Amino acid sequence: MTEFVTIAIFNFAHEITILKSILDREGIPYLFQNENLVSIDPLASIAYGGIQLKVHPNDFEKVQTILDNLNNNLKIV
């Protein structure tokens, strides 16, 4: 996992739920660093550096497109 790079940072565990299912469906290897720590202690998310989405550099552009589509199309009511 040392060659994986951070592409996005989230503050809370619930923010990554939909993204995880999309990445799994697309077969993209990923790692959410600090996911368990932030789940246990969400108020200290900033202290841990948030939940960092790490992907392989070869998948960087594809994941960036997925993130852009989520930001443009996901409406939270």
Score class of each variant (00 low, 15 high):
residue 30 Y to M: 03
residue 48 Y to P: 01
residue 61 E to C: 04
residue 62 K to A: 05
residue 64 Q to R: 09
residue 26 E to I: 07
residue 67 L to Y: 00
residue 7 I to T: 01
residue 7 I to G: 12
residue 12 F to I: 06
residue 70 L to A: 07
residue 13 A to R: 13
residue 43 L to I: 06
residue 57 P to C: 04
residue 70 L to K: 13
residue 76 I to W: 06
residue 41 D to W: 08
residue 63 V to K: 02
residue 27 G to E: 08
residue 19 L to S: 07
residue 23 L to G: 05
residue 48 Y to L: 00
residue 50 G to Q: 06
residue 48 Y to I: 08
residue 71 N to W: 08
residue 29 P to S: 02
residue 22 I to N: 08
residue 75 K to P: 03
residue 1 M to Q: 07
residue 62 K to Q: 07
residue 9 I to H: 12
residue 7 I to W: 05
residue 52 Q to G: 01
residue 9 I to V: 15
residue 25 R to H: 14
residue 26 E to D: 11
residue 9 I to Q: 09
residue 13 A to Q: 15
residue 71 N to A: 14
residue 6 T to V: 03
residue 11 N to Q: 15
residue 16 I to K: 07
residue 75 K to E: 01
residue 73 N to P: 00
residue 8 A to R: 02
residue 77 V to K: 15
residue 31 L to M: 15
residue 49 G to Y: 03
residue 52 Q to C: 13
residue 49 G to T: 11
residue 73 N to Q: 10
residue 52 Q to A: 03
residue 58 N to R: 12
residue 67 L to E: 02
residue 51 I to L: 10
residue 10 F to W: 08
residue 65 T to E: 13
residue 42 P to A: 05
residue 58 N to Q: 13
residue 53 L to Y: 00
residue 41 D to E: 02
residue 10 F to H: 02
residue 8 A to F: 01
residue 25 R to M: 14
residue 47 A to S: 15
residue 10 F to K: 08
residue 70 L to N: 04
residue 39 S to F: 00
residue 29 P to C: 11
residue 56 H to D: 12
residue 44 A to Y: 05
residue 70 L to V: 12
residue 48 Y to W: 12
residue 57 P to I: 13
residue 25 R to I: 08
residue 44 A to N: 07
residue 72 N to K: 04
residue 49 G to C: 14
residue 54 K to W: 00
residue 52 Q to R: 07
residue 66 I to Y: 05
residue 63 V to E: 03
residue 10 F to T: 11
residue 7 I to K: 01
